[in-house]
């Protein structure tokens, strides 16, 4: 509790964030899952999911949000979302004869306007949501936390924690 008070914003913001984060996350998932039925879809769902983590970072500081979704995990999720989307598209060649064929529709002729309808479209939406959510969070973290620093003649992107400590060392 003490640590959170030091790093983040005021108590009001933190409390409201604690209450709301789950609902915002749920809303993002809802947008992605129902993308084929209602306004929304993979991209907007992913953006809303990413804003949850952005809000966590703003309210509690970066340690809190990075403990929920680490940088390596976010990067892997980012890539695997794109790979999933490509996998779904490529399976279309295998089962339907062309890129992006909606092959599930043929196997399970679905009732319209249900959650499990529209074949591969919801799956594509979900993979896009994973990709967009993770990569937008990465963009935010890179802009907020990381700096370009010269290490041994080469330029590297590293976290500001390191940057700050090395600056302090210089001062001493």
């Amino acid at each position: 509790m003490n640590r959170e008070k030091k790093t983040g914003m005021s108590l009001i913001v933190q409390t409201v964030t604690r209450w709301l984060k789950g609902f915002i996350f749920m809303f993002g998932i809802y947008l992605a899952f129902y993308g084929h039925l209602t306004p929304g879809g993979g991209f907007s769902g992913g953006v809303v999911i990413a804003t949850t983590f952005v809000l966590l970072t703003l309210a509690f500081g970066r340690e809190r949000s990075l403990s929920k979704l680490g940088k390596v995990l976010a990067s892997v999720l980012d890539c695997s979302g794109a790979l999933l989307f490509l996998l779904i598209a490529t399976l279309g060649i295998l089962f339907g004869g062309a890129f992006f064929v909606n092959f599930l529709e043929k196997w399970f002729p679905s009732v319209n306007f249900r959650l499990f309808s529209a074949g591969t479209i919801p799956l594509s939406n979900i993979s896009i949501a994973i990709k967009v959510g993770a990569s937008l969070f990465m963009v935010f973290i890179i802009l907020a936390v990381r700096r370009v620093v010269e290490v041994g003649g080469r330029r590297k992107l590293i976290s500001t924690e390191f940057f700050e400590t090395s600056e302090k060392r210089k001062d001493k």
């Binding site: 695997s80 794109a82 790979l83």
Partner: peptide, 23 residues
């Protein structure tokens, strides 16, 4: 030739590289 390979092959490779090459 299946024309979609010109788009899908480099995309797959581009997203596969960051996943694998950490190790």
């Amino acid at each position: 030739t299946n024309l979609s390979v010109f788009i899908s092959v480099p995309l797959v490779a581009a997203f596969f590289i960051p996943v694998v090459s950490r190790k």
